[in-house]
């Protein structure tokens, strides 16, 4: 028979019974055994596990000193040699949720299985990140027992190193990461089932809840192009022949700076496109049809722009992951700001 699992419970000062908002500066403290809702948790855990200690702190103190409080909480947690850290439930208390998230992240980095519970709208849920499991809780303490039961069930599986299934199967909140599974019903059957439910006005559940993308408002036009230095950037996979920085034609994460200093136009052979998503024949014959150096040099001569920046920033956007492309865009903005560029042209592919 396996040994009883050792669970450490994290609470805020209110649930630990040391006072309300007036004590929200309470320092990180520990007590052996369960405290407050920990008594119920201990009962729910049954014979397989026990609450060996409780660590708690004031939410106000934690919010103002998150890093040091999390480190302190972790040190006190480790004194109990835990097999699992269970934080909360924090319901919809924002500062408490953020503290639970910070404690869980710290404990997880130290190699301890963790689980927390809070309302889906608690800011602590996104703060917990993609590796911490958060079970759903009501927005107030009326949902205490239900949340503790869900957290205990998932926490024990995590502590035992069991395989954790999908959010729907395990009852935790989706963490923004997805995996493939084999569905019980054929793809086409699920599609027809869902359209019939939609037509009849019956409830239906999408299989892909698409997160909302940040809306990017177009920036104001350059105030006076005649006085502006303009840079060209490209996600069209434009590289010197030989592709020295080894860009990939799809799902590429690299970027590089190349120069057209001293060139009034880009004849064939100066740059090539290694982009895998469009017909590159014409761009390879005449790279200016992507980068338009000939046109911008002429605009500079005619005084329509002050000058063309001699370097261009290049990547390949085909199949690029949002997060990587977002990072490249930000890096480019920082790079160009250093050089005094006032306007950027990004030709579409």
């Amino acid at each position: 028979m396996s040994a009883t699992l050792r669970v450490v419970h994290y609470l805020n000062q209110f649930f630990a019974g040391v006072g309300g908002e007036e004590r929200s500066d309470h320092p990180v403290s520990a007590r052996p055994g369960p405290v407050g809702p920990g008594v119920l948790l201990d009962k729910i855990l049954g014979e397989d596990a026990e609450v060996v200690g409780t660590v708690f702190a004031g939410d106000g103190l934690f919010a103002e000193n998150e890093e040091t409080c999390a480190a302190e909480a972790l040190a006190q947690i480790m004194d109990f040699s835990p097999d699992l850290v269970l934080a909360g439930p924090a319901f919809n208390a924002g500062r408490y949720g953020l503290a639970c998230a910070a404690v869980c992240r710290a404990a997880e980095e130290a190699g301890i299985p963790v689980v927390t519970a809070m309302h889906p709208e608690n800011p602590g849920f996104p703060a917990a990140g993609t590796s911490v499991h958060t079970v759903s809780a009501a927005d107030s303490a009326v949902g205490m027992e239900e949340a503790l039961e869900a957290a205990a069930r998932l926490g024990l599986k995590l502590a035992r190193g069991e395989k954790i299934g999908s959010a729907a199967d395990e009852g935790h909140l989706p963490r923004g990461i997805r995996y493939n599974e084999i569905a019980e019903l054929p793809t086409s059957r699920r599609a027809v089932d869902m359209v019939l439910r939609k037509i009849k006005g019956e409830p239906y559940q999408t299989e892909l809840d698409v997160p909302t993308l940040e809306e990017i408002a177009p920036p104001e036009p350059v105030a006076d192009p005649k006085k502006a230095r303009i840079a060209i950037v490209s996600e069209g996979g434009m590289v010197p022949p030989g592709n020295p920085d080894r860009f990939s034609g799809s799902r590429n994460g690299n970027w590089a700076t190349y120069s057209f200093e001293g060139k009034d136009a880009l004849p064939g052979g100066t740059f090539i496109s290694i982009h895998g998503g469009f017909n590159t024949v014409f761009v390879n014959e005449e790279p200016d049809r992507m980068l338009a150096v000939d046109a911008f040099r002429r605009l500079a001569v005619e005084g329509e722009i002050a000058e063309l920046h001699d370097d261009f920033l290049s990547t390949c956007g085909n199949g690029g992951a949002f997060v990587e492309m977002d990072g490249i865009g930000r890096a480019w903005a920082a790079e160009l700001k250093k050089t005094g560029v006032e306007g950027v042209v990004l030709p579409a592919t």
Partner: peptide, 22 residues
């Protein structure tokens, strides 16, 4: 399009009307 377990954004484009996706 997001790779398994990556947390990457799952689509390159989306409309709010598509609320029942297989």
């Amino acid at each position: 399009v997001g790779r398994p377990g990556s947390g990457e954004f799952p689509l390159v484009f989306h409309v709010p009307e598509a609320d029942a996706v297989i």
